[in-house]
Simulated assay, not measured.
Amino acid sequence: MSLFTGTTEFYRKYRPGIPQEVARVLDHATPQRRPRRLLDVGTGTGLVIEALLGRFDDVIGVDNDADMLAAAESCLRPELPKGTSLTLVEATAEDFAPPPGWRADLVTICRAFHWLDQPKILRQLDGQVGPGGAVAIFGDNSFWAAGSPWKDAVRAVIKDFLGEERRAGRGTFQHHNRPYSEFLEESAFNQVDEVRVPVRREWTVESILGYLYSTTFAARGLFGDRIEAFETAVKSTLAGHGDGDTFPEENEFLIRIGRRERE
């Protein structure tokens, strides 16, 4: 069972998308040759692919959650530019193998690298990325980690209901403290560039709750019959922050782009 079971409807509606400036950085990370191939690992509901539509001719998205892939299919297929091929594969990243002879120009891993066997994935990608290609590992700051008064207050409510440790579905979140650049530097993609893209967002009570229900640390099912009490507590807490029903967030995307040496 996926850690994200039961979150798909909230993920698609409330997860922030990929800003166009991030899409521009990714677009410029690889050669403009044709056909141009994209492999999106941990594709979820297709947010990365959606942001890059029209920039790649042959796209493969991989995820182990069938519901997420169904949402990606229904969203992306009608928007595909003419001549673009899209294949969505239900598999773990570690088990995925591309079609024979297929090599990516760009691999994207957004908000998902922490769930993977990082060294193993990067070893596999060495055989799945074509000459001159790149691996981009990127994401914005987690709601759990990023600090602001209203976020800190909501996080405290989550801890009151689910415990001090960050949840990951029915278990707890296990994470290393190593920068992702170090993993790239130890792989075949050891020429690493970092790009930061600031982003400002406006949240509402509805979108905050919807976002929380899209996560593994505050999925709706974790609260059981206390869900109404949780929502009441969040709304009461947020009433002491923000301007009416508006809650600003200053965030940024950190993009790490790894390329092979001397290609």
Rank of each mutant, 00 (worst) to 15 (best):
A97M: 12
I109S: 01
G133I: 03
D57G: 12
P100C: 05
E90N: 13
A29S: 14
I208E: 06
L212V: 07
R12Q: 10
S74V: 13
V154M: 10
I257M: 04
I158K: 07
R34M: 08
T237V: 11
V89R: 13
E186D: 15
Y213E: 12
P16T: 04
F56D: 02
T30I: 15
R33G: 09
L52Q: 07
W115Q: 09
E249Q: 10
V129T: 05
E79I: 13
H176T: 15
A188I: 09
V129Y: 03
G133M: 02
A93T: 11
K151C: 08
Q32F: 14
K13L: 13
F96H: 04
R55C: 01
E228P: 02
T8Y: 09
D140S: 12
R12E: 10
E252H: 13
R36M: 03
W102P: 02
F138A: 02
V205R: 15
G224W: 11
V22S: 00
D105V: 00
M68D: 06
F230T: 02
D40F: 01
T87E: 14
A71L: 04
A168E: 13
H175T: 13
E206N: 06
I49S: 00
A156W: 08
L39C: 09
R155I: 13
T30W: 06
G171R: 05
V129E: 00
A233L: 03
A219G: 13
Y14E: 01
G17F: 01
N251M: 00
A93C: 10
V129A: 03
G240C: 02
P78H: 09
S187A: 07
I208K: 04
H114C: 01
V157T: 07
L106N: 00
H176L: 14
R167W: 06
R24L: 09
Q174D: 12
Y213R: 13
R260W: 00
A188R: 12
R37W: 08
D243M: 11
L106Y: 00
P19C: 08
D245Y: 11
T7I: 10
A146L: 15
E249K: 05
L106T: 00
E261F: 14
G54L: 11
D95M: 11
G54K: 09
Y14M: 03
R24M: 08
L88Y: 06
Q174V: 14
R103W: 08
T232A: 15
V41S: 07
G139T: 02
L254E: 09
I257P: 04
A91N: 12
G221L: 12
T8F: 09
L212P: 05
R201Q: 14
F253V: 04
L209S: 07
I121V: 15
L52R: 08
A71P: 06
S2Q: 04
E252G: 01
E249G: 04
I49M: 00
P98E: 07
R167T: 06
E182G: 05
A66G: 08
E249L: 08
I208P: 07
E90S: 12
R201A: 09
L88G: 05
D140Y: 15
R200F: 11
R178V: 15
A97D: 13
L254R: 14
F56T: 03
G132P: 05
P99H: 05
G17D: 05
